[in-house]
Amino acid sequence: MQRPSSEGRRTLQYAALRLLLPLALALVLVLPGVDAALAHAVAAGDKGYIQEITGVNLLPFTYLGAKHMVTGYDHILFLFGVIFFLYRLKHIGIYVSLFALGHSTTMLLGVYFNVGINSYIIDAIIGLSVVYKALDNMGAFQRWLGVQPNTKLATLIFGLFHGFGLSTKIIEYNISPDGLVPNLLAFNIGVEIGQLVALSIILIAMGFWRRTPSFLRHAYTANTVMMTAGFVLVGYQLTGLIVSPT
């Protein structure tokens, strides 16, 4: 892939940041007035439903897992970054499998052993995973450090953090221990279904975009936008951590 010149990259990056940074600043400034529950992304209706039911409920938990993944913009952003420059289904399958292995492991073990991490902190780390992947796609680490990080290992490691984000939210649901293991497995299956749905939509959209000349022209800008979105997520969560009463 032929990358823009240094001057061209700086111009594109400056234009994107000039557009997006005021939005990021505005979001951070209004966060102190946002309900803490919103920062944890826990739907009140879903939380209430899970707190009321007991026993094995496979279909409801499968639905909730799929819903969480499809509506989880942080997970989708990272997934978008992972497959951005992957063209072969074999390679896409490897990276998505590594991500799934990571988040499935920590999600299941985290809930089973009741290991939760502060929601704001883990979600800030997830935001950083989006920043990392955008910088990786932009070739920043090669320019800055002279080395290319192991992208497969990084995908697995960040998958582990994404899984802790899932487990932390499930623990907040106060899920009943009655039927815990089957329900967790059903939730994880739902997450994988939701991931496949989100991935399919992304791949279809990327397939059309890659066929146009604008893909190579705007790939750097797109990753700059993704990087900025990741920083917004980090700022959102850290602000929530500071203003949260607990």
Rank of each mutant, 00 (worst) to 15 (best):
F164Q: 07
V225L: 08
H218D: 13
A198N: 11
G165N: 01
K169Y: 09
G165P: 04
G190E: 03
S214W: 15
S176H: 08
A219V: 00
H218G: 09
R210A: 03
A229G: 06
L203P: 04
L216Q: 14
T224V: 14
T168G: 04
M227F: 03
W209I: 10
A198F: 07
A219Y: 06
G230L: 04
I193A: 00
L199E: 04
T212R: 14
N223M: 00
G179K: 08
S214I: 13
P182K: 06
M226N: 07
G179F: 03
G230F: 01
F208C: 13
D178Q: 13
I201A: 15
G194D: 02
M226T: 11
E172S: 13
R210I: 05
S167D: 03
A205Y: 11
L166C: 07
G190Q: 02
S214M: 13
N223Q: 08
G190I: 02
T212V: 09
P177Q: 00
E192V: 07
L166I: 12
I193H: 00
F208H: 14
P177Y: 08
L184D: 00
I171L: 15
E172K: 02
M227K: 04
I175Q: 06
V191L: 13
N188W: 05
A186T: 05
Y173H: 09
T224K: 00
V225C: 01
L216D: 15
F215D: 02
F215Q: 08
V181S: 07
I202T: 11
L216I: 13
G165K: 01
G230K: 04
T224N: 07
F208E: 11
A219F: 07
K169F: 08
S214R: 13
T228I: 09
I175K: 02
R211P: 08
Q195P: 03
T212N: 11
Y173A: 07
G179N: 00
R217M: 12
L184K: 04
M226H: 01
G179M: 08
I201K: 10
E172M: 07
V232D: 09
Y173C: 01
I204C: 12
I201T: 14
L166P: 03
Y220N: 13
G230R: 02
F208A: 15
T212G: 12
I193T: 04
W209A: 09
I204H: 12
P177M: 00
I189K: 07
M227I: 05
V225G: 01
H218Q: 14
M206T: 08
A222C: 11
R211E: 14
F187M: 02
Y173L: 07
T221A: 11
P177H: 06
I170L: 15
Y173I: 04
S176L: 07
V197T: 06
P182T: 00
I171R: 02
